[in-house]
Nucleic acid binder design. Structure first.
Length: 595
RNA sequence: GGGGAUGUAGCUCAAUUGGUUAGAGCGCUGCCCUGUCACGGCAGAGGUUGCGGGUUCGAGUCCCGUCAUCCUCGCCA
């Protein structure tokens, strides 16, 4: 026999059909309504809320405070018509209590445990275990769990092996800042936490495991954002004897199955694809939100011979003149335009030229340059504008034009609610630049990572313009969010050597930093490619959330602190000595605990 | 590292131009109430105005610094 306090049902499952049964429920006191002679109490667990009815004599002198944990035994009773609560699945019944046992008491919680809450985030994070009692956060975690489990099943069906890779690994010279872990056994040496399992999954391909996947925790010591935590979770995968088409096809099947099982959404495939160049040219960003139009348009052919010096100078200096046509239906006031211009200037634009388009000449700062015969018509045709539309122009270096107009487009999308929620516009963005020039160190860096295959194995030959080389890297973008990225890898030693030369990594340095990988690749590496999907972002996005904190049980603050457990924290001098570390920071008095 | 916002009761907020004893709702405590489910009624407790300086006859309010949280630029191969 089990203990008599153990539940026979959960707080969400009893219905009218259970009437008459004697049951035991366990849960937390959610709300109390004391009517003197009769006492109502809502008992809550992960599965729901059930109303408990206590005649006063049963409640007696036992205190049943908020968030107390109870075991209640009683009879499932049908409610009279007027007393049925139609808002609740369990609303047709209630429990007429015969016995109540307090399993655990509680102080009054620092904030109410309710679905909708406007409590300050730092307080919620300090008492995260209470925050997580709230139905809305529990539903988020349940969704995330369902999503990840569906994805695991899909990869298993595809023949992938779930293989774990080390958390204590080697510091990587490029990329994000590493989290370091001092070694006790090797004085003065450090492990690094993985930014991703990148190198290990390539080694697994060399090993012939063929198809690998893992739900992998990754660590990057960089500043946080709403969509970035210092530790985050990826669905990481790699395949052998494949090219990007196999990666795209696998992921499209996996995402279709996952979205169907976890979200009840049918995705169309194949997903659209566009090159990085196309994305930058049409949307100004490398993660376009395809739920709305407002694409960027090139005004060069009009601007080149117009009277507006700013436009002509920008072109003469090798820059661009581009614009966005805002349809008349989306009314922009002068004040709106001023606000948009302020935003544009903050991003580096010198100004925002605009024209209220009309064949008769229109209005706005640009109107006086559109008076020449045919000029207005020509510009309107170029910008796909009709009478009454407003066109916003930026003239500058290409990078500035794209950045400003890309941001402007997203702002307009938000302002006019153009992006419909519940719509899932996936797209692959391919052919990213292979290298990026770093002005500070005067050298080239890999845009993705140094093992990314170039589109052209010859790397453009002897006199190549490295800035123009493309890589076989790709991102998966959903509704304006970068969900993940991957690439076809270099499996040819000669190409890898050439990449290192261009990056300015000499033979000695190469050997020290990547020797084990290069050696492994020399032992018969299959052509391979992979991808990793950010599960925090994907979970959040499929729930319609704009902050990944809400799908992470124990997230960190913008300063990478855990307000609940107090990490990071100082450690005892003995602990530091053991790992051969001395801090450069003055020893400080430990801060007062905040409670 | 830079920019912006916020910080007043357990929680969410208010407090006129710098001016009396810093208020309200919710929650909490006590009493009353047999059909509530945002129960209702009466009464009550509860404050280092984030912290430290300064200006002033007088500071929640103005100034300087600092801390925390959020958003963001840089950063994130």
């Amino acid at each position: 026999m089990g203990a008599s306090w153990k539940r026979t049902h959960d707080c969400g499952e009893l219905r009218a059909a259970h009437a008459g049964a004697t049951v035991v429920l366990n849960g937390w006191v959610n709300k109390r309504r004391d009517h003197g002679g009769i006492y109502f109490l809502d008992l809550r667990d992960r599965y729901g809320i059930t109303q408990i009815v206590l005649p006063q004599k049963v409640a007696g002198d036992v205190k049943l405070g908020p968030e107390y944990v109870l075991s209640v035994r009683g009879k499932v009773t049908l409610r009279d018509g007027a007393n049925i609560n139609r808002e609740r699945p369990t609303g047709e019944i209630e429990i007429a209590v015969e016995h109540v046992e307090v399993l655990s008491s509680s102080p009054v919680p620092p904030f109410p445990i309710e679905d909708e809450i406007d409590t300050a985030l730092d307080l919620r994070l300090r008492y995260r275990y209470l925050d997580l009692r709230r139905g809305s956060l529990q539903r988020n975690l349940i969704h995330r769990s369902k999503f990840i489990q569906a994805m695991r099943r899909a990869f298993e069906r595809e023949g992938f092996l779930d293989i774990e890779t080390p958390i204590l690994t080697k510091a990587t010279p490029e990329g994000a800042r590493d989290y370091l872990v001092p070694s006790r056994v090797h004085p003065g040496e450090f492990y690094a936490l993985p930014q991703s399992p990148q190198i290990f999954k390539q080694l697994l391909m060399v090993s012939g495991l063929d198809k690998y996947f893992q739900v992998a925790r990754c660590f990057r010591d960089e500043d946080l954002r709403a969509d970035r935590q210092p530790e985050f979770t990826q669905l990481d995968m790699e395949m052998s004897f494949v090219d990007e088409e196999d990666i795209f096809g696998t992921w499209e099947r996996v995402l279709q199955a996952t979205m169907r099982e976890a979200c009840g959404v049918e995705l169309e495939s194949p997903f659209p694809r566009m090159t990085w160049d196309e994305s930058m040219e049409r949307f100004g960003v490398d993660k376009p939100d395809l739920r709305f139009g407002l694409e960027l348009r090139d005004a060069k052919s009009w601007a080149a011979d117009c009277e507006f010096q700013v436009f002509r100078n920008a072109l003469a200096a090798g820059g661009r003149v581009m614009g966005i046509t805002v349809p008349a239906a989306l009314a922009l006031s002068r004040k709106d335009i001023t606000t948009l211009e302020d935003g544009a200037k903050a991003l580096g634009a010198k100004g925002l030229a605009w024209w209220k388009a009309e064949k008769a000449g229109g209005a706005g700062p640009l109107a006086k340059f559109c008076v020449a015969p045919g000029s207005a018509e020509r510009l309107m045709a170029l910008m796909s504008a009709s009478d009454g539309d407003t066109i916003l122009f930026v003239a500058d270096r290409e990078a500035v034009v794209r950045k400003v107009l890309g941001d402007l487009r997203n702002q307009l999308g938000r302002k006019f609610s153009l992006a419909q929620s519940g719509t899932w516009k996936f797209t692959w963005v391919t052919s990213f630049p292979l290298f990026e020039w770093d002005e500070d160190s005067k050298r080239w860096f890999s845009a993705h990572h140094p093992f990314t295959a170039p589109v052209d194995w010859d790397l453009g030959g002897a006199n190549a313009d490295f800035a123009k080389l493309s890589s076989r890297a790709y991102d998966l973008v959903l509704n304006g969010w970068e969900l993940g990225s991957g690439s076809v890898r270099i499996h040819r030693a000669d190409v890898q050597q050439r990449i290192f030369e261009i990056l300015g990594i000499g033979p000695e340095e190469r050997q020290r930093k990547f020797g084990f990988l290069l050696e492994a690749l020399s032992f018969g590496a299959p052509p391979h490619a992979g991808f990793a999907l950010g599960l925090d972002r994907t979970s959040a996005l499929t729930l319609g959330l704009d902050n990944i904190r809400d799908v992470i049980a124990f997230p960190k603050t913008a300063s990478a602190a855990d307000l609940m457990c107090g990490a990071p924290s100082q450690v005892a001098p003995e602990q530091l000595a053991e790992v051969h570390v001395r801090t450069a920071v003055e020893a400080q008095v430990a801060p007062e605990p905040k409670a």
